[in-house]
Design a binder for these strands. Structure first.
Lengths: 333, 333
DNA sequence: TTGAAAGCGCTAACAC
DNA sequence: GTGTTAGCGCTTTCAA
């Protein structure tokens, strides 16, 4: 593979000149440039990115750390990140953390040794202190779905509490008289906020009790389990707000298995807006996040910072909207 | 961030020595080593991977090129690849090609400039010539789901035709008298093979006609569309073998919408074995591939080759097995 | 067992 | 406008 030296030699110029035409900076004579370009073509020369990275400490690579790509939410998110990165000539490394902090820690170590230009952090077990470490290393960071006190990194999230309120209001509006909540793991801020939104709406209603809140791990099986426990404890429940779509899908399965009709006997609403909510029967009402936009914004903003186009850290809260589908399509009042 | 020089200086040795203890090669005195190690700890020194890569032309990074991560099949596959890579200290770059050959071409260019150690190619629009180019560049390659004449790269695939035969036999065994096939895009070898498997079984049956084969793009909407066309042309169809699970899900939706009962009136079988086949109602019978194993094998084998543990190219054909579920659970004969 | 020094391929300050 | 050259941080001969 040809090097910059080969090009320089053959074009009868110095490597500096070649470098200049490559990077379009500094003055260079039109003729010289043309000659160099010609040689580049002839030799099918491609600059060696690694050497470049070593020289200027930029790799053109960002990393995306997420819990697991198996969750469709993160599939879509990472698709957005990769599309956006590609559009800016960046490459993305992807990391499944399973929300394990040791793993996240290891990744960060590896990534900084690799001169990764920036990190999008969509996994949340790492404490602020650890994130601070990344910042000290001067590596730009965008975190998803967190609220950070310390201001040195950008945050993008959805209006979780508001979305949850929309969901519960909708369930009530369609006639539910007792609405339960299947909650995600409370270590996660998204799960907390959605629970809070649920509480906001129901806390003063006379039928509300704490036992209407069940843990569901943000997973299909978690959703199933929660429904089983729920129906046993509260046979009169007629509305369920699941903290994410996977749990809603699990809930739907469990209800079906127990012979409980959705939406006739129990209305069901999820959160996230993953494509699979349209795969079930009935289709699932859900509070949709702007998943793709979230990923795209995160990536583009990160790259802006990497490239020094901005040094503003961003704190964005994206809208959510209720998509009404069969799982809540009942009588209206 | 400390460099190898800092360590050398502080430990009172040369950088060469530090390098030796780092890489555990060459002779180095026990005491010296201890001293160096101590300094490394003190300085919290981490070797710079980029510099290392430049020096020895290995980056510890592999790339995974796939059509799109939004297809759950590839989510699981990439999860396997990343897990396996991580277990060997490798990092993975991921690329959504949308099966666009220009995009694949671009990726390959970028990747080789980045000194990527190896590529797993799960997207198949690129011709063999292009793949040959990669080989000439000496970069190890594992392709998924192809049959290549030219032997310089490893191939891993599933027994697609056999799986298809299993599917159709199963449909017939459960009482279907007229089985249609929703086929994937015929540029893809997997789609071809599954169609071939279908043909193998039905070609001599008296009810068979070409119009029982419908294109479905390997997508949900494709599956829906195919079913609509199918029911119109062949109202008496009572079995459908979809070339992948997404199409099967789409088919199920369409059948439901048309008021056709599954499995009572039409039995339905998919292919792939993605998790979502358990999310529908009824759950989908499917020919399951060993998706995770496929990804894991690909990654581990690739890394073996990168590290020179083997120079054998591999040609593996993984088993598939039928998972019988509600969508075909009818009378048996 | 250790060190000096020549790369790996490119960038960028500095000189002409 | 263009060339020289000193890095970027590490590996690896080759001598000592």
């Amino acid at each position: 593979m040809a090097t910059i030296r080969d090009v320089a030699q053959r074009a009868g110029v110095s490597v500096a000149t070649v470098s200049r035409v490559l990077n379009q900076n500094g003055y260079v004579n039109q003729d010289t440039e043309a000659r160099v370009m010609k040689v580049i073509k002839e030799l099918d020369y491609r600059p060696n990115t690694v050497a470049r990275s070593l020289a200027n400490r930029k790799t053109g690579t960002i990393a995306l750390i997420l819990p697991t790509i198996m969750n469709p939410f993160f599939s879509e998110l990472s698709r957005a990140v990769e599309d956006s990165a590609r559009s800016r000539g960046f490459t993305v490394i992807f990391c499944n953390s399973d929300d394990l902090d040791t793993r996240e820690q290891t990744y960060i170590d590896v990534l900084r040794q690799k001169y990764i230009d920036g990190i999008i952090f969509a996994s949340s077990s790492l404490g602020e202190e650890d994130l601070a470490v990344i910042n000290e290393n001067g590596i730009p960071l965008v975190v998803l779905d967190r609220a950070l006190r310390e201001g040195n990194c950008s945050v993008i999230r959805s209006k979780n509490a508001e979305g949850a309120r929309k969901a519960v209001h909708h369930l009530l509006a369609t006639g539910c008289r007792k609405v339960a909540h299947i909650a995600g793991p409370q270590e996660l801020i998204t799960a907390q906020e959605r629970l809070r939104g649920y509480r906001d709406v129901v806390k003063d209603l006379d039928w509300f009790e704490e036992s209407l809140i069940l843990p569901g791990q943000f997973s299909i099986t978690g959703g199933k389990g929660a429904v089983q426990a729920l129906v046993e404890a509260h046979p009169d429940v007629d509305g369920i707000f699941a903290g994410n779509d996977l749990m809603a899908i699990g809930a739907l399965k469990a209800l079906h298995r127990m012979g409980i009709k959705v939406p006739e006997e129990v209305s069901l609403c999820g959160f996230d807006g993953i494509g699979a909510t349209e795969w079930t029967e009935p289709e699932l009402t859900t509070v949709a996040q702007l998943i793709y936009e979230m990923g795209a914004r995160a990536a583009l903003h990160l790259i802006d910072r990497v490239q020094g186009y901005t040094d503003q850290v961003e704190d964005l809260e994206l809208d959510v909207h209720l998509i009404e589908r069969g799982s809540t399509r009942r009588r209206k009042y």
